[in-house]
């Protein structure tokens, strides 16, 4: 492999590497840039697949001796057009996402949200159960009056937990409704992901 070819290969590696790095980011703009870089890397790679470079493959200009392989160039032309169109589509999509959400971050998976909500519910239930256990223990060990005091404290805890849970559920529900609503959501209220 000759010097210039090696240089092209190094360029391909750099483009693909940087592209993948950008693709792993959370910002949509960087993802689009990553897609562009990877696409160009792949196009250059096709150029390499044509073997050693030679004279321009134009019929009748240089004879058929020692010209480059024209086929990869044809393929690159097709691939470039496709990459261009898809980049345009991706850009408009991320612009639309930015208009809708106010930032250009990748949204969380619906499933992730559901799992988190389920875990939170379980944790709250667990906390209440622990509190009940503690109340029972106090009741058994320190007598009736201490038990009564603990029970009053417990009611507070349960109420607090329940209020917190209900708030979370309502948030989730409102978010879900907003997400299902095709015409709503043009404002930026959808932007904040609840922590």
């Amino acid at each position: 492999m000759s010097g210039p070819d090696l240089l092209v290969l190094a360029t391909v590696a750099t483009l693909a590497g940087s592209g993948i790095y950008l693709l792993l980011e959370r910002s949509l703009t960087r993802i689009v840039l990553g897609v562009v870089l990877i696409g160009n890397g792949a196009n250059l790679f096709i150029l390499l697949s044509g073997g050693v470079t030679g004279r321009p493959p134009i019929r009748g200009l240089f004879g058929s001796e020692g010209i480059s392989d024209p086929l990869p160039q044809v393929m690159i032309l097709t691939a470039i057009v496709i990459t261009l169109a898809l980049t345009a589509f991706l850009l408009s999509l991320s612009h639309r996402a930015m208009r809708l959400t106010g930032d250009d971050e990748v949204r969380d998976d619906e499933e992730d949200r559901r799992v988190i909500a389920r875990v939170e519910r379980e944790l709250a239930r667990h906390r209440v159960r622990e509190e009940v256990e503690r109340m029972r223990r106090i009741h058994a060990e320190e007598g009736f009056r201490a038990g009564l005091r603990a029970r009053l404290g417990l009611r507070g805890t349960v109420r607090r937990e329940r209020r917190e849970l209900r708030r979370r559920m309502r948030e989730e529900w409102e978010r879900q409704m907003a997400a299902d609503d095709p015409e709503g959501g043009m404002d930026t209220t959808m932007g904040e992901d609840s922590p």
Partner: peptide, 29 residues
């Protein structure tokens, strides 16, 4: 229609689709 849910899901879909096409292109090369 470009609704929020579809844009969110579509983004993942499009990026995954493009990536798989690039891998196919590399396979072709």
């Amino acid at each position: 229609g470009g609704t929020p849910a579809r844009v969110r899901a579509g983004m993942t879909y499009v990026v995954v689709g493009i990536l798989s096409s690039v891998i196919l292109l590399i396979g072709v090369a």
